[in-house]
Simulated scan of single mutants.
Amino acid sequence: MSKIKYILGLFDDPDQMMHGIDKLQENKIGIYDVYTPMPIHGIEDKLGVKRSRLGIVAFICGITGTFTAFSLMYYTMVYDWPMNVGGKPNFAIPNFIPITFELTVLFCALGMVAAFFFRNHLFPGRAPRVMELRATTDRFVIAIDANAIADSTQVDNLLKEAGAVEIKHNERKYVSYE
């Protein structure tokens, strides 16, 4: 079984990298991913990245916390051990609002952390997936899947025309910083 190879175009300037993305898309060459040391405005739209579903995950986690809080308080205060406190009803909703709010926020926060770790593959003991180490410091990298294209020299020429400082042909590696 062969390893998937990638063509990496390294750029010094974000504008040149955006020009490289345009050139590749004009020639119908699919881009695997783009790695930048800083956020670049408008790159998601240019690459066709879908909108995040993180808000849906936050809502589901918050509703889970709300239902957990209400069901726990109902079970303890009404069903399991009802107490007469100052003649108030056992299920007085205004008394439950602070705890419900706190559990909603707690479940939402912990759910978002879990979703972040799951989505970004940041599990304990897993080596980070790094294509080019300089992408975190001073280089802007466009990665193209070499198996998806027929002619790699065409991609090399397009990247050079766009202003790539360096072009690498490599296999995907999992780099460990230890």
Score class of each variant (00 low, 15 high):
S52W: 05
F59R: 04
I93C: 01
I43R: 13
W81E: 13
W81T: 09
P39G: 04
T76G: 15
R134A: 00
T100D: 13
L8Q: 14
I144W: 12
V141A: 00
L72D: 09
K46G: 14
G65E: 08
D45L: 09
L133Q: 12
F123Q: 00
L10F: 00
K5H: 02
V155T: 08
S52E: 07
Y177M: 10
M18H: 03
H169L: 02
V78N: 14
F91H: 01
F140V: 00
L54S: 10
T104W: 05
L47Q: 12
F96K: 15
L159F: 03
E132L: 03
K3P: 02
E161A: 05
E26Y: 01
I43Y: 10
M1K: 14
M17S: 14
T136I: 09
C61T: 11
H121V: 07
T76K: 12
T153L: 06
G125D: 01
T66L: 12
D15T: 15
C108G: 07
F91S: 00
G42F: 13
A162D: 06
S71A: 13
V78F: 05
T36S: 11
R126N: 03
K168H: 02
K46C: 15
N90R: 10
A127N: 15
M18D: 04
I97K: 15
N95Q: 07
G42Q: 10
G30V: 07
F96T: 14
P89A: 01
A162T: 05
N157E: 10
A162W: 02
L159S: 07
G48L: 11
A164I: 14
A150Q: 06
A146V: 01
R129D: 07
Y35W: 11
D12V: 07
R139N: 00
G62Q: 07
G163P: 12
L72E: 08
A69E: 09
I21G: 15
G111P: 13
T136P: 06
L106Y: 02
L24A: 10
